[in-house]
């Protein structure tokens, strides 16, 4: 038991260490490492892979915090912030900050996915997601169409934009949110239903 605890503690430390290392690398690595294609590719690959691994372990290690809505809302906020600073506004100066948020999109989305699994494992709230995400889509599309104009035109005109920013960043966020949440919500809803039925018919 103690061995397990110490291993778990080491892995948690390693997870935080990796995140710190990735942050330092983003801000302090030489410019040439980013701009040269093979090295830049390896560098970005390393950042994504290690951040995903670190987030996976850390989510598992701190899983009790994600059993409540607070943990899930934290994950959602992280994802929305990362999308906003990556696609919503263009951060030219400093460009490293832009890279930081662009990389953050991956672990933040992954964190949302994992925290949704934990939340839905412990709470039977799958239906809440299944019902309110379509409402969110419909109303945000309606309000965006009302205040931003023709969304199809906006999307097409944005397709060829070089800096990667988009007025439809909210749509990408929503799409990412629903991709992370809806499949798990369906599985969770069905799973909890089966569990309830089994419990009802089982005489204990």
């Amino acid at each position: 038991m103690t061995q397990h605890k110490s291993l778990s503690g080491w892995l948690t430390l390693l997870g935080w260490g990796l995140i710190l290392l990735d942050g330092l690398l983003i801000f302090f690595v030489p410019e040439s490492a980013l701009t040269t294609l093979p090295r830049g590719f390896v560098f970005v690959g390393w950042l994504i892979l290690t951040s995903l691994l670190a987030v996976s372990w850390l989510t598992f290690a701190y899983r009790s915090h994600f059993q409540s809505w607070l943990g899930w809302i934290f994950s959602l906020s992280l994802m929305v912030i990362s999308f906003f600073f990556t696609m919503g506004i263009t951060l030219q100066i400093p460009s490293r900050l832009s890279l930081f948020f662009a990389i953050l999109v991956f672990p933040a989305s992954w964190l949302l996915f994992l925290s949704t699994i934990i939340l839905l494992w412990h709470r039977d709230v799958g239906l809440l997601f299944l019902s309110w995400i379509p409402v969110l889509y419909v109303w945000s599309a309606f309000l965006a169409w009302r205040y931003q104009g023709n969304l199809i035109e906006l999307w097409l005109s944005n397709l060829n934009q070089a800096d990667g920013s988009s007025p439809l960043w909210w749509f990408s966020t929503l799409f990412c949110l629903s991709s992370c949440v809806l499949p798990i919500a369906v599985i969770s809803f069905l799973g909890h239903t089966v569990r309830l039925l089994v419990r009802e018919f089982r005489q204990d």
């Binding site: 419909v138 309606f142 169409w145």
Partner: peptide, 10 residues
């Protein structure tokens, strides 16, 4: 309501 508004405006 949201769907109806969206259909009408879009």
């Amino acid at each position: 309501l949201g769907f109806g508004f969206l259909l009408i405006i879009a």
